[in-house]
C-alpha cells in the first residue's frame, strides 16, 4: 500500500506523519487526537467535519490528507486559548447555539472563517456561510443568534 510522509501545520504546529496515500483528512486528524473533527454523514453532505485549510472552510471527510500537503490546518481545538473559550465558543455556550453538540465544531469553524473575513456580517451572510452545516437539534435560530452575539461582543470589546 502506498504511503508517504505528510507535512502539515496543524493548529499552529508543524508536524510530519506517515500516512496512506488514500488517507482522508478526517481520519488523519482524528487519528492524531483531534476528535473535535466530527464524522456525521462522512459523505460531504453535513459539514460536521469542517476544518479550515489556509483559513478557508473545507470538508475533512472528502479531502485527501495528502492533497493539503504543506498547508495550514485548523480545527476546533485551536480556538480556546489557555483554557478560555474563544468569543464564538462562549457565544454558542451562552446563547444555546449548541444542544447535542455534534454539529457545533463544524458550525463554529465555518463561522470563524466568516468572522475573520467579515467582522459584522448580516443575518443573510451568516446563513449563507453556514449553508452547508446541518444541525438536527437547534432549528438554526439559536445558532444564528450565537454568531450575532459573538459579533456584538467583538464590536463592544
Amino acid at each position: 500500500m502506498a504511503r508517504r510522509l505528510l507535512k502539515l501545520t496543524v493548529n499552529g504546529r508543524d508536524r510530519e506523519d506517515a500516512v496512506d496515500d488514500h488517507a482522508l483528512l478526517v481520519d488523519h486528524l482524528r487519528g492524531i487526537g483531534l476528535t473535535g473533527v466530527k464524522q456525521g454523514c462522512d459523505a460531504g453532505e453535513c459539514g460536521a467535519c469542517t476544518v479550515l485549510v489556509d483559513g478557508e472552510p473545507r470538508l475533512a471527510c472528502i479531502t485527501l490528507a495528502a492533497s493539503v500537503e504543506g498547508q495550514r490546518v485548523e480545527t476546533i481545538e485551536s480556538l480556546a486559548q489557555n483554557g478560555r473559550m474563544s468569543r464564538l465558543q462562549a457565544a454558542f455556550h451562552e446563547k444555546l447555539g449548541t444542544q447535542c453538540g455534534f454539529c457545533t465544531p463544524g458550525m463554529i469553524m465555518s463561522a470563524e472563517a466568516l468572522l475573520r473575513r467579515h467582522a459584522q456580517p448580516s443575518e443573510r451572510e451568516i446563513r449563507a456561510a453556514l449553508g452547508g452545516n446541518v444541525c438536527r437539534c437547534t432549528g438554526y435560530v439559536k445558532i444564528v443568534e450565537s454568531v450575532q452575539c459573538a459579533c456584538a461582543a467583538a464590536a463592544g470589546a
Partner: peptide, 9 residues
C-alpha cells in the same frame, strides 16, 4: 454550487 466549503475545494 453546493455550499461554501465545497466551493472552496
Amino acid at each position: 454550487v453546493a455550499a461554501p466549503a465545497h466551493r472552496n475545494a
